[in-house]
C-alpha cells in the first residue's frame, strides 16, 4: 500500500503501519529493546520527518503511482532476491563450532540489560569508536557547509560576473 497509494500522506501512514508491524514481530521474538528502538527512531523521528516534508510540499497527488512495467521489474528483482535468500537460508551451512556462539539472553536477564552489558564490556572499543565516527561526521558536516562571512564575496569574485545596468532596465520597465 505504501507504493500503491496515490496520496503521499497516505503512503507515509502506511509506512508507519509497516513499521508498527515490524515492531510487533520483534516483540514476538522477545527482542523488546529493538522493537521500541524501532518505534522511537523510525515512527517517532523518521516518519514524522517524512510527514513534515510531505505537508510542507503541499498536496502532491500523483496520478499514476508507478508504471506497470517498472513495477513488474522491481517486483521481479525483489522476488529473485527473496528466492536467493530463501535458498541460502535453507542450504546454509554453519561451522560446527558456530552453535556455541548463539548469543541469546538468558531468562532472568532483560533484553535491554543484556545489550547494555555487552555494549559496555565486550564491545567497549567499537562502541567508543562509533562515538568518534559520529563526531567525525559532525565535524565534516560543519566544515563542509559552514560559510564564513567573507567567503561568499571571495567566491563571487572568482565567478564570471555579468554586469546589468539597473538603470536602463528599470527605465525600460517604466517605459512599459
Amino acid at each position: 500500500m505504501v507504493i500503491r497509494s496515490t496520496q503521499t500522506v497516505y503512503s507515509v501512514f502506511f509506512l508507519i503501519f509497516a513499521f508498527l508491524n515490524a515492531a510487533g514481530l520483534l516483540i514476538m521474538l522477545h527482542a523488546e529493546f529493538l522493537a521500541f528502538i524501532l518505534l522511537i527512531v523510525y515512527v517517532g523521528a523518521v516518519a514524522v520527518l517524512f510527514l513534515f516534508v510531505v505537508m510542507m510540499l503541499g498536496e502532491t497527488q500523483t496520478k499514476t503511482p508507478l508504471s506497470r512495467r517498472y513495477a513488474c521489474a522491481v517486483g521481479g528483482v525483489c522476488l529473485f532476491l527473496l528466492t536467493a535468500l530463501g535458498i541460502m537460508v535453507v542450504r546454509w551451512k554453519t561451522s560446527s563450532e558456530a552453535l556455541i556462539f548463539g548469543f541469546s539472553p538468558t531468562v532472568d536477564m532483560k533484553n535491554t540489560e543484556a545489550l547494555g552489558n555487552l555494549l559496555y564490556t565486550h564491545y567497549l572499543i567499537p562502541f567508543q569508536g562509533v562515538g568518534l565516527i559520529l563526531l567525525i561526521a559532525m565535524i565534516g558536516a560543519i566544515v563542509l557547509t559552514l560559510r564564513h562571512r567573507r567567503k561568499p564575496l571571495q567566491l563571487l569574485s572568482n565567478e564570471p560576473m555579468r554586469l546589468v545596468d539597473l538603470r536602463s532596465s528599470s527605465m525600460k520597465e517604466e517605459a512599459r
Binding site: W92, S95, E97
Partner: peptide, 26 residues
C-alpha cells in the same frame, strides 16, 4: 559471521580449520 557465528578472527580461523574438508560457498 553466518559461517562461524562470531566476528572474531581467531574463532573464524578455528572454524575454517575445523571444517576444512567441506567449506560452504558462503
Amino acid at each position: 559471521y553466518g559461517f562461524s557465528g562470531s566476528t572474531n578472527f581467531g574463532v573464524l580461523a578455528a572454524a575454517i580449520h575445523m571444517d576444512a574438508s567441506s567449506l560452504p560457498l558462503g
